[in-house]
Amino acid sequence: MSRHAESPTARAGTRRRWLEFLRPISTTQAFVLGISVWVIFFAAWEFVTLRGMVNPLLVPRAQDVILALYDLLANRGFAVDIGVSILRILGSFLAACLIAIPLGVLMGSFRAVEAFANPFVSAWRYLPAPAFIPILLAWFGTGEEPKIALLFLGVIWFLITLIMDHTRNIRDELLETAMTLGASRAQILWTVVVPAVLPNILVSMRQMLAIAWTYLVIAEIIAATNGIGAVMWRARRFLDTDEILAGILVIGVLGLLFDLLFRWLHHVLFPYLSRTGQ
């Protein structure tokens, strides 16, 4: 560790230890450590498969998973399935947001709206969305509707609750300041409440989008002929475990990409939240 001397907390004669409370690590260190965990993971994977410690039919080698993914994409139209899945996510999530954002903000702003809507929203929140699959299938058949509906039901109640809580947590003094400057109710809502809660709405959306992926796979496994989940479920029938793992890999990567997209949006839309204003 040649960075030893730079560290303000490292005093002469004090041994530099790996684990230390409250001590930051450099970005290089963080990067190397972040890569290491994957290297260890794949090394362990290779080790157990090469040594024949597991049934190769059930646990394929890492490179077989990559090859299976390539085969799926190049020869079997997997890209279309990925696209279908993404559209299902975006469509249902957008619909959920269109209702949850205004409703959550109004519930957090006005006690009367909360008293009216919260008993309903809370009750739905405790019902597991997959429990509705049989009735959704009965209502909508096997088209896109039941999948969209399941995803919608899976995220909307939590999204409403999160946004309501964030709105309620806006400090009273901000609203009162606006009142003593002569703001009307509508002006307070649009010029204080909405801009104050917007960054947190984006954070809530980011959190709930991750949940949406969970419901997507459930929906596609149970009632779909296309989409990532359907491809994985079909692969199970022929014990193509490499294809199942390829599907999981794709979902993981997509989840990560969406998460990064939201982080980037937060950074771009709300530059004033950082101390440098950049």
């Binding site: 901000l174 300041t177 003593t180 400057l181």
Partner: peptide
């Protein structure tokens, strides 16, 4: 009303 402006102990400048 705007005829009585108030300054609070906590910071009330709008971050945005």
């Amino acid at each position: 009303g705007s005829d009585r402006g108030m300054v609070f102990q906590t910071y009330t400048s709008f971050d945005w």
